[in-house]
Design a protein around this nucleic acid. Structure first.
Lengths: 222, 222
DNA sequence: GTCTATACCCAGATAGAC
DNA sequence: GTCTATCTGGGTATAGAC
């Protein structure tokens, strides 16, 4: 007992390590989102998670490694969310779910969305391979589904790519351009405004491709 | 005559200065777009316009001054483009023109759009006042117009804000996320693809708010 | 007006005590 | 594992020759 280094409960050290890493990643996500990779400093990230700067280098070998981990974590969340675009559902259900989920992500993961946008805008130097593998695969399966819907006459004849880009951009805009939106709104969006915005995006897109968009034809309320 | 410093044609020096400044601004726009403010270096900008680094400081007192000038220039182009949203026209014409113009800007001013997006994503530290003055004024006049259209029954009842954000995001996406789009497309978009994307965006949005969107009801082909 | 050489500072990374 | 002190590279900005 006393000040000599004692025993730890098995696993507690590893758990603690994970916890600290998560804290650093969260802080890093916010700082990278607000300042960009070049503008962010290890000092600022360290301050944000109340750790000495040197500790960050103990857990992550370099600034770039840390950044890469942040981006990878976001990409994973993104891909999982993408599953809400169920390829088995009807167009109404699939699109409504997907748009709603993406709006929710924009609200709950604003910083993640910004880091992702930043990364892509700068030419995706870190995650370029993900774009060419995971994202491309995901996109191609959805394109095929949308094509089928068109062929069956369930929706108008649209190029699936432009439709997907439209969904991505409109939903992510609420995270990436949150500052502009909140400035024009003179404050953060209320719960009601989020619902209203989500509903509007759903309706315009669904009606735009020939569905009635009222959300009353087979979609269970979420 | 000879090597002693001679006369200049009136205005030629000033013209030259403007030319050099424009060259620096163009180079800076590209570098800032690709690297962000923090990631960009004066050296990289100097290289891009084939000038020694010190000359940049002769024409622009600091990196931040240069950046500010770049952002202001973009904002001006943006606002001018905004005039294509003519408040006097019918919804079909006004929206179609505005969307088309914004798509064109995304294609022709990719870097400018990226710098703007970057600036807003990082909380608009430089142009925050523009958001609260010029942009807010512009937005409010358009909101009023869209409200009127709704009231007259010309378009469905939508919150004008969400509609505007939708137009901004979908069109700017083609500039800001160009890298992602081109990766999925395995190359830059062709002329035909730009036309097709523009047409799709117009149709989905116009139909989405209750217009027929076929572009054949009063809009002269541009 | 133009450019080379340099001052100065700050940020990423590490050494080494605890 | 944690933290202080320090090294080092690179970036902004400027001094001063031409």
């Amino acid at each position: 007992m006393g000040h000599r280094d004692g025993f730890e409960k098995p696993g507690s050290r590893a758990e603690n390590r994970e916890e600290i890493e998560r804290a650093i990643l969260n802080a890093a996500e916010e700082v990278f989102a607000q300042k960009g990779f070049g503008g962010a400093t290890m000092q600022a990230i360290a301050d944000a998670c109340h750790l000495p700067k040197a500790n960050l280098h103990y857990y992550f070998s370099s600034k770039e490694t840390l950044y890469r981990r942040v981006v990878e974590r976001i990409f994973t969340i993104w891909l999982e969310a993408a599953d809400s675009f169920e390829t088995s559902a009807t167009p109404d259900v699939a699109l409504r779910r997907y748009i709603t989920r993406k709006m929710q992500l924009s609200r709950e993961h604003r910083y993640g969305s910004k880091v992702w946008a930043n990364e892509v805008m700068h030419g995706a130097p870190i995650i370029h391979d993900y774009l060419e593998t995971s994202l491309r695969r995901w996109t191609e399966t959805r394109i095929a589904v949308i094509r089928r819907w068109s062929a069956e006459g369930a929706i108008h004849d649209v190029d699936p790519r432009w439709l997907l880009y439209m969904i991505w951009s409109t939903t992510q805009h609420y995270a990436d351009f949150a500052h502009q939106i909140e400035t024009l709104n003179q404050g953060p969006l209320s719960d009601a405004q989020w619902v209203s915005a989500t509903e509007t995006v759903c309706q315009i897109i669904l009606r735009g491709i020939g569905l009635n968009g009222d959300g009353l034809d087979g979609v269970a309320p979420l």
